[in-house]
């Protein structure tokens, strides 16, 4: 099956089996390993990516569902020299421990903040926004603080 989509701002065309998920395309075919693999049943959220700007689980999204659409992975957000404000906030607030869930967390946060532009979310709203991504290290607190700080930074522009 030929799949044409936009990945991190660039047009991509790949030939993949029809039963592959987006996660398989990203990790196996394209070597983009920032999108993590774990439960494969949309329960843990480490595979989160943005589909047309909204966070989705790449593990249960068939690659075919991305036909003609735009996918953003953590590699499309910032790099170590030019961090995205959300990534910077995660570092500044000590929100990263083992880090395996963090790409998914950052993208879940970005999706919510983009969906609610200019909004300074309360703690409960942030927790709701992140509930689809499990973190076993941090207890979420510093992640919540980081997202609040990122929202403020983004609102200031």
């Amino acid at each position: 099956m030929r799949l044409d989509f936009t990945l991190n701002g660039e047009a991509v065309a790949v030939e993949v089996p029809p039963d592959w998920t987006l996660l398989q395309v990203l990790r196996r075919e394209l070597g983009l390993l920032g999108t993590k693999e774990n439960c494969l049943e949309a329960e843990c959220g480490v595979c989160s990516v943005l589909l047309d700007g909204r966070v989705v689980n790449a593990c249960i999204l068939l690659a075919a569902q991305c036909q003609g659409r735009s996918v953003t992975t953590i590699e499309g957000l910032g790099d170590p020299e030019r961090l995205h404000p959300i990534q910077q906030a995660f570092l500044d607030h000590g929100a990263v421990q083992c880090g395996y869930c963090i790409p998914g967390m950052v993208l879940a946060a970005k999706s919510w903040l983009d969906e609610n532009p200019g909004r300074l979310p309360g703690e409960d709203e942030i927790r709701e926004a992140l509930a689809g991504t499990l973190c076993r290290c941090t207890g979420y607190q510093k992640i919540v603080d980081a997202v609040a700080a990122a929202a403020a930074a983004l609102a200031k522009g």
């Binding site: 949309a42 959220g45 989160s48 589909l51 966070v55 999204l61 509930a131 689809g132």
Partner: peptide, 9 residues
């Protein structure tokens, strides 16, 4: 229903 990831799809 699920997280935002599931509800977006």
């Amino acid at each position: 229903v699920g997280g935002h990831q599931v509800r977006n799809v």
